[in-house]
Every structure is written in structure tokens, then in C-alpha cells.
């Protein structure tokens, strides 16, 4: 019976470690996107924030999923704030009373990438929508993220603008995964896809069959916005701490960090554009 009591004691000890301890640390859940996380921005932004803030014992937990999922997470009350890039969904979020306000943070853009041989001649397009029209007409393979992310939303909008009925696309591959995974698959199949510039740049070296074919059209602008979750709707959210972080990233200190942030090849990935 001695063995049994030892076992029970160990069990209790383990349980006390496993179960949530008295909250010495305030954990603020930031729902954001995989593409943002994978650039490594948070690895620089968060330490800078901890340095800057006067709040004690705050930790920002980044849960990175697709934009659609991030917004769903916030709608369920499972996040304290959002940093995403889908204006339409963000506006709907606010209209639904889930968020109190929205602020611009930074932008980058989307680019069309595809095989260097460019069978669709997308390189020659005069506008983004023309590029999409050309890809559709050529019947070349196109990889879609298909995960309700900001990128996916923009892609769908571009097909619409180009006047292409998505059901008529012959070689359309909807992968339901992150930008990285989608680019890998695009590379594998030497297909076309729409990517955010940051992710494409950070992966460029390992994508042997892809090159940048079209860029620059304002229609491919990718604006990031941040929204604190409404404490009236979800009283448990850490509103004060969320606003503190938002103040940081939209203020001079955070904006500088964002603007200075470069990837492994020295490319700037985001352009800060928070309004003063």
C-alpha cells in the first residue's frame, strides 16, 4: 500500500504542475495569420514590445492560423486581439460588434508567381486582373490556398474582377493550407499562384520552379489591420493589455521595428502605415 500512496502523491504533484497556475502572467492571445508568423516578424516585434511596455507580466501568445480562422477564433471569444489582412472580413467583424475599432498597421502586396516559361504570358499583363484572365485562358495550373485566408479572399476577388467564373477553371488546385505549403505545391507542379510578397521572398531560394511574374497593381495591395476584441461582448478578454500592444505597433516605436524588419536576404517585408 505504500506504493499506492507514493503514486497518488506523484499524481497530485503532476496535476498541480499541469493545471493552470495562479495567473502570475497575463496571457494575451493574438490571433494572426501563418504568413505573418512565418516571416519571423513576431520574433522581433514581441521582444521589442516587452522592452517598451510599462505593463508588468504580460505575454503575447500568437496563435497563427488563416485569416478566416483567426477571425472565427476572435468571434468565439478565444482571442484578445486580431492582426489580419482581409478588410472585408475585418469590417464585418466590427459591424457584428465583435471588435471595438480597427487600425491600419502595415502593408505589403501580393504578387503573381509562376513558372519561368510562363505559358500564360502573365508577364505581359497590363493589370492584375488581366494577369488572372490570361492564366484562366491558358488553362495552366493554378494553386489556391483555399483556406479563407486573406490571400485566398484576394485571389477570389481577382477572379471576379477578371470576369472569370471559377467553376470554369480547368486546372484549379485548392489546397486548404498555409502560404508556404501552397507555394511548395505550386513549385512542385510548376503552376501559378497568388502569394504575399513577404512569404514568397522568404522562400525564394527553395522554390526552384517559380519566378515573380506580375506585381505592382494597387489591386494587389495587402493591408494589415489590428482589432481589439470587444470587452462588452467578451468580458474575460484582456482589453487593457491588448490596447497596450496595439498602441505599440501603431505607434512610432513599433512602426519603426516593422519598417526595419528584414528577412534573411535583407528584403523589407512590410511597410508600416499606421495613421498618426
Amino acid at each position: 500500500m505504500k506504493k499506492a500512496s507514493l503514486f497518488v502523491a506523484t499524481l497530485l504533484l503532476l496535476l498541480s504542475v499541469a493545471l493552470p497556475a495562479a495567473h502570475a502572467v497575463t496571457r494575451v492571445i493574438l490571433a494572426s495569420t501563418t504568413s505573418t508568423q512565418n516571416t519571423g516578424l513576431f520574433d522581433v516585434l514581441l521582444p521589442a514590445y516587452y522592452n517598451w511596455t510599462t505593463l508588468k507580466d504580460v505575454r503575447i501568445d500568437v496563435v497563427a492560423v488563416g485569416t478566416g480562422k483567426a477571425i472565427e477564433t476572435a468571434k468565439r471569444g478565444d482571442a484578445d486581439l486580431l492582426l489580419v489582412h482581409d478588410r472585408e472580413k475585418e469590417d464585418a467583424f466590427l459591424a457584428g460588434g465583435y471588435g471595438l475599432e480597427r487600425r491600419d498597421v502595415m502593408y505589403n502586396d501580393f504578387v503573381v508567381v509562376g513558372p519561368p516559361s510562363d505559358p500564360a504570358k502573365a508577364r505581359k499583363a497590363k493589370s492584375a486582373s488581366e494577369a488572372f484572365r490570361l492564366v484562366a485562358a491558358s488553362g495552366a495550373a493554378f494553386v489556391s490556398r483555399g483556406d479563407e485566408s486573406g490571400t485566398h479572399a484576394r485571389e477570389k476577388m481577382m477572379w471576379k474582377t477578371a470576369g472569370v467564373d471559377m467553376n470554369t477553371l480547368k486546372n484549379y488546385l485548392s489546397v486548404g493550407q498555409s502560404m508556404e505549403a501552397a507555394l511548395r505545391i505550386t513549385d512542385e507542379k510548376a503552376a501559378y499562384t497568388l502569394s504575399d510578397r513577404a512569404t514568397y521572398r522568404s522562400m525564394k531560394d527553395s522554390l526552384k520552379n517559380l519566378t515573380l511574374l506580375y506585381e505592382g497593381d494597387p489591386a494587389l495591395f495587402n493591408q494589415y489591420g489590428t482589432i481589439p476584441v470587444n470587452p462588452a461582448k467578451f468580458p474575460h478578454v484582456h482589453y487593457k493589455e491588448a490596447m497596450d500592444f496595439i498602441e505599440f505597433i501603431t505607434g512610432p516605436a513599433g512602426q519603426k521595428v516593422i519598417g526595419d524588419f528584414k528577412d534573411n536576404h535583407g528584403n523589407t517585408l512590410f511597410i508600416p502605415n499606421a495613421k498618426r
Binding site: 499541469a18 493545471l19 493552470p20 496571457r27 492571445i29 468565439r76 471569444g77 478565444d78 467578451f234 474575460h236
Partner: peptide
């Protein structure tokens, strides 16, 4: 465990627990 779920009040989502 989601806040919108029955055990949401425990605040356990996105934790090691």
C-alpha cells in the same frame, strides 16, 4: 474549451493544460 463552449470559463484553450 473554447470560450463559446461549455468549459470556456476555465480559460484553458491555447495552454499546455
Amino acid at each position: 474549451l473554447s470560450r463559446s463552449g461549455p468549459l470556456g470559463f476555465m480559460g484553458l484553450l491555447y495552454t499546455p493544460s
